[in-house]
């Protein structure tokens, strides 16, 4: 007789859900993703402005940046930064200062900047040219008009894809595991390589990713609603916002 026994212990999942190593991993994952995303947004705004500036030199520079960092895998960029660069310079300071944590933030931030450049550029181009005309006609310079009139309007278009980028970054930060960073996936790996409760720990990591992503999705819905000022002043309950989110509807 064949018995089909499933070897899975929910008790282990419960036990490790709030394990110190796992919680430390969650914290590292959050820090890497948030800081890298902030770097990405700043780089994205700067390079997008170069792309729409009309200057050939700046446009080309920004174009090469996007081409280079979008055209190669983030993992490769991470390996180059963490292992490649120290080899080139053979400098003690670089080796000690460039921790896995810092390398992950820098590499993911620069990589994210390339994607954010394209998102920001699309956002800027989505604003009617009449807005720039009107801003200039009341005496604003190009930069003032960008900052005060065009960018705030571009944000509405930019937030949804930026949310996607951030969620992707949260999950893809797990590749930093390969340079020895103990983020969430790395923490699970560290534990199951000792106790061999592989599936249980992977489920623990999965649940944590879902929790984090859900919380940030709600934050995103909130930001989109705040930016929709002037579109419609509609207040919504948390429940209808969540159901909107689950249904993939966007708050206008």
């Amino acid at each position: 007789m064949i018995t089909l026994a499933i070897d899975f212990d929910f008790g282990v999942v419960r036990e490790y859900m709030f394990n110190d190593v796992i919680l430390e991993g969650v914290w590292i994952t959050l820090q890497v993703a948030v800081i890298a995303q902030i770097i990405g947004v700043i780089l994205g705004v700067l390079f997008a402005l170069m792309r729409v500036s009309g200057s050939r030199v700046l446009g080309l520079f920004a174009g090469i940046y996007v081409w280079l960092f979008r055209g190669t895998p983030a993992l490769l960029q991470l390996l180059i930064l963490y292992f490649g660069i120290p080899q080139l310079f053979d400098n003690q300071t670089i080796t000690t200062e460039l921790t896995a944590f810092r390398a992950a933030i820098i590499a993911f931030g620069i990589n994210e900047g390339a994607y954010m450049t394209e998102i920001m550029r699309a956002g800027i181009l989505s604003v009617e040219s009449g807005q720039m005309d009107a801003a200039k006609s009341v005496g604003m310079t190009q930069m003032q008009a960008m900052r005060r009139i065009v960018l705030p309007q571009a944000m509405r278009v930019v937030v949804p894809p930026t949310g996607n980028e951030f969620i992707a970054l949260l999950k893809n930060s797990s590749v930093a595991f390969t340079i020895g960073l103990v983020e969430l996936t790395g923490a699970a790996n560290l534990i199951y390589s000792v106790n061999f409760k592989i599936m249980e720990l992977l489920v623990v990591a999965g649940i944590w990713y879902l929790v984090i992503v859900t919380v940030f999705s709600l934050v995103q819905v909130e930001i989109e609603r705040a930016l929709s000022i002037g579109d419609r002043d509609r207040q919504q309950s948390l429940f209808s916002r969540m159901s909107d989110m689950m249904a993939g509807r966007r708050i206008p």
Partner: peptide
């Protein structure tokens, strides 16, 4: 920009700043 600010223009399609109130539009510049 300085010379432009002394010349007002009203556009066919209004081109009001949609993220600002009526007063916000007027006091922006």
């Amino acid at each position: 920009a300085r010379k432009r600010s002394g010349i007002g223009i009203v556009f066919q399609r209004f081109n009001l700043f949609p993220h600002l109130t009526a007063l916000g539009n007027v006091i922006e510049a």
